[in-house]
């Protein structure tokens, strides 16, 4: 178990390092940041002074090490427009995005997994048809359109739920569905096919021959074996829900990282963009690591390899 843990940790740290390289290179590719601060008639002295302030006079490799050193200590630079540390801005917005992503994630799990089990156990029934319909719709409808339609129907026409902004639990319902529906559909399909496969296996026949009741057959013997693929998907989902929130936050005027990133793009505030990117990728990698650990817990064959 510890060897397994160590391997995964090393891989995760490497992944974060690679991400910092990419972010660093992308930022340099945007051109000379000084042109964003200064007008065309700037003097050579101001230009060079700003370069020294931003550390641009150093060799690129040195710049990179300064950059990861700063990132490691939580310094993500200064926003050009707001003139405040990026880390503060990002941290202020992060909770809202996380809460929304978790809400969408819970929706995808709480709807997708039971629906998948139901479809598999009652294969060919009305439940199965309805479940698969739900999955296909979730995959094919664009999330922003679902968001807009949901606002139109449930907020504007029916007036049941608030149309935008962060607030009480009712504020979460529409964005969580818009964000999580596609993931719920994918989850449902994966759980369904994995359950069908395991329910067909010899050890299920043996479990039945032992006199195990139907509930334990489904939830104990089959489900635990069927959970591996859906679990990977869930891990990837949580990551992609954090990034997917960028669009949904715009639709629902949700005060999170997504809205922050969109505004930063409009304002060419690349320090903020860079900060958002690093935070999101680190979150993504951490969730993958968690998934790997849960894997080992569920399937002993992985744990002992």
């Amino acid at each position: 178990m510890f060897a397994f843990l160590r391997k995964r940790l090393v891989a995760s740290v490497l992944a974060v390092l690679i991400v910092t390289v990419i972010v660093f290179v992308l930022a340099r590719l945007q051109g000379d940041p000084r042109t964003l601060y200064l007008d065309e008639n700037m003097s050579q002295e101001t230009y060079e002074a700003l370069g020294r302030e931003l550390g641009l006079d150093r060799p690129v490799v040195v710049q990179y090490f300064i950059f990861i050193g700063n990132v490691a200590t939580g310094d993500l630079g200064i926003s050009m427009h707001q003139r405040t540390p990026v880390a503060d801005i990002v941290m202020e917005r992060l909770p809202a995005t996380l809460k929304l992503a978790v809400a969408g994630f819970l929706f995808s799990l709480l709807v997708g997994v039971p629906l998948g089990i139901l479809s598999a156990v009652k294969r060919g029934s009305v439940w199965d048809v309805a479940g698969r319909g739900f999955a296909v719709l979730g995959h094919s409808l664009p999330s922003f359109w679902v968001g807009i339609m949901a606002i139109f129907v449930f907020s504007v026409q029916l007036g049941w739920l608030p149309p935008f902004g962060d607030g009480g639990l009712d504020h979460y319902i529409l964005p969580a569905i818009a964000l999580g529906w596609a993931a719920a559909g994918g989850q449902m399909r994966l759980v369904r096919s994995a359950m069908l496969e395991t329910l067909d296996s010899q050890y299920i026949v043996l479990a039945r021959a032992k006199g195990v009741n139907e509930r334990d057959i489904v939830f104990k013997h089959a489900l635990r074996n069927a959970l591996l693929a859906p679990l990977t998907f869930a891990g990837l989902t949580l990551g992609s829900l954090i990034t997917g929130a960028i669009i949904i936050e715009t639709v629902f005027a949700w005060p999170g990282l997504g809205l922050l990133a969109i505004n930063a793009v409009v304002a060419s505030d690349y320090a903020i963009l860079q900060g958002v990117m690093i935070v999101i990728t680190v979150l993504y990698i951490v969730t993958s690591l968690l998934v790997d650990l849960i894997y080992g817990w569920i399937d002993p064959r992985i744990r002992y390899d």
Partner: peptide, 18 residues
């Protein structure tokens, strides 16, 4: 599994891996 029980063909497949 009580009065009547079964021994299945393939021991690789007949035991639950988890």
């Amino acid at each position: 599994g009580g009065e009547i029980s079964m021994i299945l063909q393939d021991p690789m497949q007949a035991l639950n891996p988890v």
